[in-house]
Design a protein around this nucleic acid. Structure first.
Lengths: 245, 245
DNA sequence: TCAAAGTTGATAGTTTTACTATTATACAAA
DNA sequence: TTTGTATAATAGTAAAACTATCAACTTTGA
């Protein structure tokens, strides 16, 4: 159901920068018409991300997005039922992309602890290796997930949406991390909780450092993401080895 | 600026149950007119909690609330500028109440580790000792904070709202927990991050157990909160003692 | 090459939400 | 009695969140 098609394109202008085209298959129930397959669909996704980042999800409307892309409200409604589903689509895109990156960057690590550390670096820092993904600005997408991503699954009707499979990608990402944790300590009782905690804590501390600094020890300055990474190393390994004591 | 006035009333019908009237002073910028001071105001708060729990925050409107309490939209607008501020008011109420409970239940613990454990129990389990707080149903309030509490501070205009002091109670609660952590291990580098992580992780795992079970190892059944408590003991002590390794 | 099918843009309209304003009434304090 | 304060009742506006229709254009495919 979920798979990735990767195409590597060597940009001749900037030889050390790889241009990656990721094609993600995202739950079909999330859209009325697959936005990946048309020019307009891709513009909706691309500019949807930018507009939510600019004005926030609450102020975001299809009307404003239509203006931004010189199209109409009605046209956008042909792709997405409403703005909430567009948002969940974007967050799923992010999770799928993260899942791919975790796999990619842990692949060549030698031991399980090194794998876990690599996974943590991936979760925290989205700018690594300056990959760019064609019509999706992953830096901006990361920012909106950090800022308002939890709204995707914190609501009254989660159970319905969960039945439709809207959160499968998050569960898969979480499962992938949990597997790495289990490699570090087979039989560990809290692998899934630790996995989801690491993801949520990464995002929270990035957000808190910027906006609510008294909720974190991370100070927002150049290279602060490295500090988040170091903290999560401590937390992850502490939790894993703390069991039993 | 923030203080608590506690009044203990022994309910003669149920001698082992204490009826507590907590009067919390909550940031004045959150309301136009203090809802604690009038009958209508208290009904707005009481039924606002119940209605958000019933239909979810997105579907919640002042019009529906007005119907529920047989009043009018316009009357509710005299207390709160909009539903977001009512929500932040409620979440602040929750944080203030938690702060009080953490203080109260850690007070008599002997060592710092026991204090930390007591604090964790308080954060996870709101039903302890079956205290009831007059017009606020704390069980229901806890449920809406678990379900949608993060929306209070995950949005585009956090910075403005933060300047108005809307999150001081959360910071204070977090600070209180961080102080306990520092008693356990003086000089620990991540006391605040660990504190906010424990609060968020408690809420997340309660929520995940019910709605997204693949994101947690906690299974939703009778007594599952004890399992959350045990997990957080492991995590907290692991993180604290893991530093340096 | 012609017709059918599909896509988008333009326009218009509905219902609900999120407010604001005005007035009348009831009740309490001075 | 006067004054003030709180609330209810009513009305109204602007924007958000859709839905429907139709014409123009492009693509497909027979």
């Amino acid at each position: 159901m979920y798979y990735l098609v990767i195409r590597w394109l060597l940009a001749d202008k900037e030889p050390d920068m790889l241009k990656v085209t990721i094609k993600l298959d995202i739950n079909e129930n999330l859209y009325l018409k697959n936005p990946e397959e048309t020019e307009l669909g891709r513009r909706i996704v691309e500019n949807g991300i930018l507009l939510i980042d600019e004005i926030g999800f609450e102020s975001f409307t299809f009307k404003k997005l239509a203006e931004k892309i010189s199209s109409t409200e009605a046209s956008i409604y042909r792709y997405f039922e409403n703005k909430h589903l567009l948002f969940i689509y974007l967050v799923n895109w992010y999770w799928e992309w993260m899942k791919f990156r975790v796999g990619f960057y842990t692949m060549n690590e030698s031991g399980p602890v090194e794998k876990l550390k690599a996974a943590i670096r991936v979760i925290v820092d989205t700018s690594q290796r300056s990959t760019s993904v064609d019509y999706v600005d992953t830096e901006v997408l990361h920012r909106i997930v950090v800022t308002e991503g939890t709204k995707a699954y914190h609501k009254k009707n989660v159970d319905e949406e969960n039945k439709e499979g809207f959160f499968l990608s998050y569960k898969a990402l979480c499962g992938k991390l949990a597997d790495i944790i289990l490699e570090v300590k087979p039989g560990f009782s809290y692998s899934r909780s630790l996995a989801s905690m690491l993801i949520e804590t990464a995002n929270n501390n990035i957000y808190f450092a910027r906006h609510l600094p008294r909720l974190t020890d991370i100070r927002y300055k150049a290279g602060f993401l490295d500090e988040v990474v170091r903290m999560l190393y401590t937390f992850a390994l502490g939790c894993i080895h703390g069991e039993g004591s």
